[in-house]
Write a protein that binds this DNA or RNA. Structure first.
Length: 394
DNA sequence: AAGGCGGGGCC
DNA sequence: GGCCCAGCCTT
């Protein structure tokens, strides 16, 4: 394509996308004003998370922490609790740390320049560009997955968008397209088009404001673009969960623990569980009754016996929690991007004959506590454990 | 460059 | 029930 055609194609895109956005944009709560803090919170929540999921979280979060100062001074457990179920919990911890820095170093005003805002925890190229353009109308690109998909189609770019090296190229292009004085609306329009029209599968080209000059469409390649290598499948982990039921003064309660400070689901609460080493092929465990019904099939007797023994030994050795596992209760799955937990849950009692104290020293990796049904709201749990405990408490 | 880090929606 | 959606961090 000669330069003049490319320039015209860019000009057409910028103009028509901006007009389309201003006519059809959704009425989202964080679009009601230009408060940089409110927009920042929305952008962090929207990382890897859909708009419909984010809206109720955003309302609860802003109601509880309406200002930079309120979030800066909040206890971390409260922040984590309001993030419960959204996933990627480091986003919440990074956001609070960053807001504390804004409170202390910038007097509560979110920085309006690339260098300062990019130095904040959890603020990468996308979030920096989004806040600068949407809140301050600065001509900075905000390239997320939607934008890469839209640009790769409209300009028929065949670079693999899963490769980090593709990003700078897309950012340069996105910046060149920003119309004078309209960075915020244009950047939001790019993402809005990706979310509503130029969707990952079955793009709605006939309603697209820039279809007339879309290179992928003109070449019949809108379904093949963007090029994106697939992620590796998550590695499976068989885990055994102890549903430890209190007795005596703890009757009706379950034993829960808080995860370590760092790593997966850091500082979240959960039911105690242990990793079961990959079973030998001979004792693989579960009746292969039609794969479809596998959702709730008990392990066979031999596998359940191995499970109970492993659960008892592992909890005793690693945690000094001595349990007597009883009957299998349920199974469920929890899939992360990189791990696939297959959980078998066993009802357990503490072994009265052995050390069954649960006021354990801080030296242990986990911190244990008894939980009553009406105390569930006080702790932040990953959804998978909420499901199990809801089932148990009815 | 590659891997760690959650959870939900669509077909 | 298997497919997809992905920014920022650390290593």
């Amino acid at each position: 394509m000669i330069d003049q055609d490319l320039a015209a194609r860019k000009q057409f895109f910028s103009e028509h996308l901006l007009n389309w956005y201003r006519t059809y944009k959704r009425d989202l709560p964080w679009r009601r004003n230009k408060d940089a803090y409110r927009i920042w919170v929305s952008e962090v929540m929207l990382q890897q998370t859909r708009v419909d999921t984010v809206i109720p979280y955003w309302h609860r979060f802003l109601e509880k922490f309406p200002t930079v100062q309120a979030l800066a001074e909040a206890p971390e457990e409260e922040v984590l609790k309001l993030w419960e179920g959204l996933g990627y919990y480091s986003r919440a911890r990074n956001l609070q740390a960053a807001v504390q820095e804004v409170h202390e170093r910038y007097g509560g005003t979110v920085p309006d320049n690339k260098e300062d805002i990019s130095s904040l925890k959890g603020v990468g190229p996308y979030t920096a560009g989004a806040v600068l353009s949407i809140a301050y109308n600065k001509p900075e690109p905000a390239v997320d997955g939607n934008v890469m998909r839209v640009l790769s189609r409209y300009f028929c770019i065949e670079d693999d968008i899963a490769k980090p090296a593709t990003r700078p190229k897309m950012e340069k292009l996105a910046q060149e397209l920003i119309p004078d004085g309209a960075a915020g609306d244009f950047n939001q329009g790019l993402m809005e088009l990706g979310a509503l029209v130029c969707t990952p599968r079955s793009p709605q080209c006939l309603t697209c404001p820039v279809m007339a000059h879309c290179a992928a469409r003109l070449n019949g390649k809108e379904a093949e673009l963007p090029v994106k290598t697939k992620a590796k499948p998550p590695r499976p982990e068989q885990r055994l969960v102890a549903l430890i039921e209190g007795q005596g003064e703890h009757a009706g309660k379950l034993l829960i623990r808080q995860r370590p400070q760092e790593g997966l689901l850091a500082r979240m609460w959960e039911l105690p569980h242990v990793l079961m080493p990959a079973a030998a092929p001979a004792a693989s465990g579960r009746k292969a009754a039609s794969a479809k019904a596998a959702a709730m099939v008990a392990p066979d007797a031999a596998a359940a016996g191995e499970h109970r023994e492993w659960l008892r030994n592992a909890l005793a050795e690693a945690e000094h929690i001595h349990v007597l596992p009883n009957e299998w209760y349920m199974n469920t799955d929890h899939v992360f991007s990189h791990i696939h937990w297959k959980l078998d849950v066993y009802r357990c009692k503490l072994d009265a004959a052995l050390d069954n104290g649960v006021a354990l020293p801080e030296l242990l990796p986990y911190h244990y506590r008894w939980l009553a049904a009406d105390e569930l709201h006080q702790y932040a749990f990953p959804n998978v454990f909420i499901r199990i405990m809801d089932t148990y408490f009815k």
